[in-house]
Structures are given as C-alpha cells and as structure tokens.
C-alpha cells in the first residue's frame, strides 16, 4: 500500500519533470514578454520532427542531434521575434494571438503534409530508454524519466542564473519591468526580446528532445503540450521559473494519480486539478507579479 502510494507519487514527480520542460520556455516568454505563444507546443513538436530526421536519416545519437539543433532553434527564436512577433509587441491581445495561432496552423499542416499523421518516438539513445533503477523491491525509477527531471531542474537553475547573474539577464528583467523606460534610456527592447526568444528556442529544443524520447508525438500533438505548459505556468505563478517546475510536478502527480485509478481519466484529472487549484489560488503557488 505504502509502496503503491510512493510509487505513484514518484512517477508523478518524474512525469512532472517532463511537463516542466514543456513549460519553461513558455514561462520565460510569458514572464518577460507578457505574451502567450499559442504555437509553443507546435514549436516543440516541430523540433521533435527535426530531431527525428537527424537521428533516423543520419543515424546520429539523439543527444548529439540535440546539440546540433540548439544553435538553430536559438537563431529561429531570435529571427521569429525580430521579424514577426515584434510587430505585435505592445499591441493588444488579438494580434499576437492571431499570429501565433496562424503559426500553429501552419506548423501542424506543414508537418502533416511532410510526415503524414503517424505517431513517432525518438530512438537513438541506446539502452537509456529502457534502463531502470530499483529503489526497493516494488519501486523502480526509469533512468530516462530521472534524467528528464534532472534536466528540468538544471534548466531552471541555468535560466535562474542567466536572469539574475548575467548582463543579458539584467537587461531582460529591465525590459520585463518597464519596456518604455528601457527604450527611453537606449536599451533597445526589440533586441532584448529577440535574444530572450532565442533562449526560449533553446528550451524548446531541450523539451522536444525529451518529449520525443518519453512519449509518442504526431503533427497535431502541439496543442496538448501547450495546454499542459500553460497550466504549469499559471499554477506555478507568472514569472517564477521554480513555480513553473512545481506547477509541472503538481500536474504530473495529478495525472499519475488519476491514471492509477483509470487510465482513461488521466488527462481530465490533470485539467480538473488545474482548474480547481486555479480557482482556489488564482495567483499561483509562487507569484512574482
């Protein structure tokens, strides 16, 4: 009994690590640029397909492929912000929403045209995907889920350091504090936003790698990832990266507990727990703003 409870909680926390990875990039862009990227989940899926091509066509190890992809997604985020999303900065809700909705549709349908509707999973990580560690006789931890959670923690630490201890980080926080003031003193908000979106691109690639290793994905998986990410960000409290990690873990536990009783209810329980917690505590667990 105790073993079962411990096992469910443990698996939930591990799943939460993956959800936190989905959410960290979104958390960063919502905290800094105050906009919700509807295509966030689709970006993750898009990069997963890119990794799929690199690992299957070139036979690369998935982590080597990830390292190759990181500069590409950084540049992608930078250019996207600079040339498209920046046009919507400072305008009302509709324009950014519409642009990212349009991107979402374009990515989903473009992937459908290219890869068809089949589900895929990333391979090429060797025995990592099946290995597990026995904690006690009844409790096993998969090495991959553990690595996923540790990566999420490392990413939070890394983003936290970047924000609080680097020059770029102080520029990003300044722009998040007061865009107009940043522009007044000559700190070009457009450039800072573009760099921030480049960083989001890096987090998207990391999330894509671990999503592809941990679960199936197809061209229309993006919106589900977006909703999970959004829920983790709101649960954790806007602007708090540690909160986002906590939010992801709460959702992971909720889903795993739900699945323990009936796998068909896993997703609903996750959403319902989000809605209930949100009604009880709209500002989230660790609100910053």
């Amino acid at each position: 009994m105790i073993d079962t409870i411990a096992n469910v909680l443990l698996q939930g926390i591990l799943l939460g690590g993956l959800y936190a990875l989905f959410a960290l990039g979104l958390s960063f862009s919502m905290g800094v640029m105050r906009f919700v990227n509807i295509a966030h989940g689709d970006f993750i899926v898009l990069v997963s397909f890119l990794l799929l091509v690199l690992t299957t066509a070139l036979g690369l190890n998935v982590f080597v492929a990830l390292i190759l992809v990181l500069p590409v997604t950084f540049a992608g985020g930078f250019l996207l912000q600079r040339f498209l999303l920046q046009r919507a900065a400072g305008s009302d809700v509709l324009l950014p929403l519409l642009i990212t909705f349009g991107l979402s549709i374009i990515i989903q349908n473009g992937l459908l045209q290219t890869f068809g509707a089949d589900s895929h999973v990333l391979a090429g990580a060797g025995t990592l995907q099946t290995a597990s560690i026995a904690l006690t006789s009844g409790i096993y931890i998969g090495v991959l889920p553990l690595l996923t959670l540790l990566t999420a923690v490392a990413l939070v630490l890394g983003l936290d350091r970047l924000l609080n201890y680097t020059r770029l980080g102080s520029h990003i926080r300044a722009v998040a504090d007061d865009v107009a003031a940043a522009d007044l003193i000559g700190l070009s908000s457009g450039r800072v936003y573009a760099l921030a979106m480049g960083i989001v691109g890096v987090t998207v690639a990391i999330a894509a790698c671990f999503m592809g290793l941990n679960m199936n994905f197809d061209p229309t998986s993006g919106p589900d990832r977006l909703l999970i990410a959004f829920e983790a960000v709101v649960l954790g409290g806007l602007g708090s990266l540690w909160g986002t990690l906590a939010g992801g873990i709460v959702l992971g536990i909720a889903q795993t507990v739900g699945a323990h009783f009936d796998t068909a209810w896993q997703l609903i329980i996750g959403h319902v727990v989000f809605l209930v917690l949100f009604l009880l505590r709209p500002q989230g667990l660790f609100p910053k703003y």
Partner: peptide, 22 residues
C-alpha cells in the same frame, strides 16, 4: 465564467481553451 473571468487578456484566451478541452 467563474474561471474565464478570473483571467485577463491572453491568459483568458488560453483559459477558455482549457475549459473547452475539459
């Protein structure tokens, strides 16, 4: 409405999506 009206702007938009998903 109880959920939707506690959110603002873009958060409201995605919030309505979550409700619809449920």
């Amino acid at each position: 409405m109880a959920i939707v009206f506690r959110l603002r702007a873009a958060y409201l938009a995605v919030g309505t999506w979550v409700v619809a998903q449920v």
